[in-house]
Amino acid sequence: MNLARRTLIGIPYLWLLLLFLVPFGIIFKISLSDYAVSIPPYTPTLDLSEGWQGIRGFFAALDWENYVFLTEDDLYWRAYLSSLKIAVISTFLTLLVGYPIAYGMAKSAPEWRPMLMMLVILPFWTSFLIRVYAWIGILSNEGYLNQLLLWTGIISDPLQIMNTPTAVYIGIVYTYLPFMILPIYATLERMDDSLLEAAEDLGCSRLSAFWIITLPLSRSGIIAGSFLVFIPALGEFVIPSLLGGSSTLMIGKVLWEEFFSNRDWPVASAVAIILLLILVIPIILFQKNQEKNQEADA
C-alpha cells in the first residue's frame, strides 16, 4: 500500500475516529461517574501523575449508579415512553399527510414534476428553527388560527393548542414532511402504470387497484420515509421545547435540561446512552431496508 493511498484513507478515518467514535467512549465513561461540584462537574477524573495506582483508583470509582437512578425516578421512564409514543404517532400522521402528496406528484404530468420536486425540497433548505417558529404565531391563543376560527364563529373561546402534544405533532409533521414525501415519490414514480391498467381491465375498481398494487409496490418508500421521520423525531429537542411547553415530556428535552439546567453531566450521559441503545434497533432496520433497495435497483 503506497503512501498516497494511506493518506487518503487515513485522514478522514482518523478524523471520524477522534471526533465521532472516541466521544462515545467518553460519554459512556462519564455515565459511570458521579456528579460533583467541581470543574468539570463529575468525579473521578483520570490522574495519570499517580501512575498505576491512579488508574486503578479511577476504574474502581466507576459504577452503574446513574443507570439505577434512571430506573428509579419515573420521570425518565415516562420521558422515554412519551417520546416513543410521540414519534410513532407523528410518523404515522406524516405518512397520512405525505402519501397523497407523493402520489399526486408521481401522477402529475412529467413536465410538472421537476417544479413540484423543487417545491418539496425548498422548505428542507429553509432553516428548521424558522419553520418551527412560524407555527408559534399560528397556534398560540391569540394566534392566526384562533383569530380565524373566532372570526368565522366556529368557536367562541380560543383553542388551547400551543404547549400541548397536538402542537408537537403539527410541528413534527410540518418539518419532516419532505423526508416522507421524497422516498415515497421515488418508488411511485418508478411504478409501471400498465399494471394498474391491467387490473382495471380485469374489473378491479380504482380503489382496490390502489390497495392491491400501488400500496404494496411503494412499501420500500413508505418504510424508508417512516424511518427518516421516526429516528430524528425520537430525539427531537427544538420542536417540544418551542411548541410543547412544559406539558410535553420528550427525552431530548430532558437530556438538554439535565445538562444545561441541572448541570448533572453523568446523568445526562446515562440518558444519552440509553437513548442510543433504543435507537440502535431502528437504525439497523433502516440500513437493512436501504441495502435491500439498492440490491433491487442493481
Binding site: P23, I27, I30, G235, L255, L275
Partner: peptide, 20 residues
C-alpha cells in the same frame, strides 16, 4: 462512521463532542 452521524440525534452528537 460515515452513515451513523446522519441518523444520530443531535443532542447525543452535541453532548459527546462537548465532553470530548
Amino acid at each position: 462512521m460515515i452513515y451513523a452521524p446522519l441518523v444520530m440525534p443531535e443532542v447525543i452528537t452535541g453532548l459527546s463532542l462537548l465532553l470530548l
